[in-house]
């Protein structure tokens, strides 16, 4: 008996299990497949926690070293926009959770609606971030050759911020340290926004796939795992909002 016949016979004797088309052959059950991919997604998210954790740690150390410059620099952020963006992102997390529910219930139409809402909220978030970044550009608060310490050595030259916080002028030396705040601000919100952009790209892909009914056959793994990513990005923002916008008001 040649090897080929042996394999063929083996395949015949071991009858082919009935299973849904999306179950890979190396998994015993759909449940096992779901748990394994879910577990892998969590491992990826843990590496993401470590990645953002490095940025957060740098921020905490720098803030401790250059406390006053960091406090004064963070007064440049507008709590209104920060709060608006937090609400927008939490809403997008909610619609994403509802997308997962729609996929689980095999409701194609509601899945499409919730995915599109998530996309709209995601784009709104980036739009608001754009408004905030543009303001920093106009005030020369982007670290680099054109950085200006004007708002910090002479706070009264920046009347809108001054009338709210009445910050005392910083010495030129200390004022220079505000650049480090904005460096970390752009590094952290920039990396966060990059994650949003990637998420939005995947969302667009998912909307096209959902339209042809790819996720409403009982195979919810992709939607579920993308949901994990989206919620993770939401969590990072919850902390960014607290650390960058809120804790330095007093």
């Amino acid at each position: 008996m040649s090897d080929n016949t042996a394999i063929a016979n083996g395949a015949q004797t071991e009858a082919h299990h009935e299973h849904p088309p999306y179950q890979r052959h190396h998994f015993e059950t759909v449940g096992q497949q779901f748990d394994a991919t879910n577990f892998a997604m969590w491992l990826f998210l843990l590496t993401e926690i470590m990645f953002f954790g490095g940025l957060f740690t740098a921020y905490l150390i720098m803030r401790n070293w250059y406390y006053q410059p960091f406090v004064d620099a963070s007064h440049q952020l507008q709590i209104f926009w920060g709060t608006a963006n937090t609400v927008v992102l939490i809403a997008s997390s909610f619609t994403m959770a509802m997308s997962v529910w729609s996929a689980e219930m095999r409701r194609r139409k509601s899945l499409l609606i919730y995915l599109c809402l998530t996309l709209v909220f995601g784009l709104t978030f980036l739009g608001i971030k754009g408004i905030e970044w543009h303001e920093k550009w106009e005030k020369h608060h982007i670290p680099g050759a054109h950085y200006s310490v004007q708002s910090f050595v002479n706070p009264q030259s920046d009347p809108e911020v001054y009338k709210e916080y009445k910050d005392a002028p910083l010495s030129p030396d200390a004022a220079q340290k505000t650049e480090e705040y904005f460096f970390l601000y752009f590094a952290m919100t920039g990396m966060h926004a990059l994650h949003m952009v990637i998420g939005i790209g995947i969302l667009v892909f998912m909307i096209f796939r959902a339209k042809v009914g790819a996720y409403t056959t009982g195979h919810v793994t992709f939607v579920e795992n993308f949901g994990l990513y989206w919620h993770f990005v939401d969590i990072v923002w919850i902390y960014l909002f607290a650390l960058l916008y809120l804790i330095s008001r007093h």
Partner: peptide
């Protein structure tokens, strides 16, 4: 110890827990 950052981080952590436990299942 300044209480403002402690409170802000405590609330952020509570929100994080809610997202992890329920939205992330």
């Amino acid at each position: 110890l300044f209480w403002n950052p402690v409170v802000a981080l405590a609330i952020a952590t509570t929100k994080m827990m809610l997202v992890v436990l329920f939205f992330m299942h």
